[in-house]
Write a protein that binds this DNA or RNA. Sequence first.
DNA 1: AGATATTAAATTGTTGACAATTTATGTGAA
DNA 2: TTCACATAAATTGTCAACAATTTAATATCT
Lengths: 235, 235
Amino acid sequence: MKHEGPKAQALTEEDICQRVRDSVLEQRLAPGTKLTEESLCGVFGVGRTTVRRAFLLLSRDNIVELQRNKGAVIASPSPDEARQVFEARRTVEAALLARATENASEADIAQLRAHLAKEKDALSTADIARWIRLTGEFHLHLAKIAGNDPLFQFLEQLVFRSSLIITLYGRHGRAAHSCKGDEHTRIVDALETGDSTTANKVMAEHLSEIESTLNFDRSAAGGDLHQIFGMAHAS
Amino acid sequence: MKHEGPKAQALTEEDICQRVRDSVLEQRLAPGTKLTEESLCGVFGVGRTTVRRAFLLLSRDNIVELQRNKGAVIASPSPDEARQVFEARRTVEAALLARATENASEADIAQLRAHLAKEKDALSTADIARWIRLTGEFHLHLAKIAGNDPLFQFLEQLVFRSSLIITLYGRHGRAAHSCKGDEHTRIVDALETGDSTTANKVMAEHLSEIESTLNFDRSAAGGDLHQIFGMAHAS
DNA sequence: AGATATTAAATTGTTGACAATTTATGTGAA
DNA sequence: TTCACATAAATTGTCAACAATTTAATATCT
């Protein structure tokens, strides 16, 4: 039995971007990780041209940082960038939530409930990677309902950057703790009753709580082994 | 005397993106315009690789549409996209304006006043292309003051798309007419006195007015000669 | 040893030739 | 003429070889 199908359709740059984004969302790719062209070529079975295009697109979304003659590295948002990203999220998600409250159909609510169940399941089975991704996707699901593509795509970028930020500055265990309040469920509840005010309030608190769990004291540059191990820099 | 300097530093893909964006902002590049690789190579004196990268970046910003094996075309936003873009602008600019009201220094206000003078000058000298660009840049200037880079970059995208939309659906002469109210000046006035409420109100009216001048009745796909000349489509 | 300079390896950047596809052109029959 | 089909031109997509740069390794000197 072969590992690949008979045709093995070649992956496009968008496919690779999606894979990288998913990995970032599940925190399997940490900020500072070096991505060499050759390795990704091998992993995805594509030419250097495709990988290169993927890097360019990812750099436009601030997911990877592209340094001249030095290649691609998973971005390491600074504390100030982190603050701005969450500020932007509060702004955009408030607007999206208002729209979603107007537009949400019964089917939408049902889908959101199903999503909440998945989150709960992932948490109970201790599948943290899956839970982390689902948590991010919940916000994107809400954004989709709002029906504004530019805002949706923008929030998508912000969610991915948030993932990088949490990986960098998040206190371990705090993420799960912040789930205690079950804010996602409360947001859907408010959405169902058309209570836009409450939904916005909960969302604002939710985002602020996530941001408040961040700890900027330690190393600014993630993935720097020297700092991680408390060693001085070589050269 | 040579036309180029002795070194003639090679342009980068960002340079080319900027040129294209500027052309869009001044409405010198209409939606539907085909951009061949060869022609841009000739114009900017760069290799095909660079042009290709520029296309990819521009497509990510919805400024050009990239079709497989068919090349790059200046995007033609649909009426529905237009609505969403302006909706997004109202959302984002409201938030940016609120931040700008808090952050604006005297120097910022002075710069904005200088910008207003430029707008007035361009209008009085009938330099419409320049006026159109300045009008767009005014909003970006405001966004810069707000001090949130993600929101700024997002608005940048929206402004460029707005330019395409106005080129496509704008009634001629209406743009200048909408300047009668001199809303930009009123926004700066409100900003100077810290009157966030008034600033937001004027901005919201301003954007809605621009949107209301659009006419979606005629050709949806810009650059489509069939529709322009009132002919039926061939195949 | 420790630091510095030199050489080798690895990685990225660029170019040009060739393949694949689309678009334009031309030819002939109904 | 007009449609269909075949051919040619033009344009885009892909790949591999080469150049430029960075990183690692080695050698050399104090």
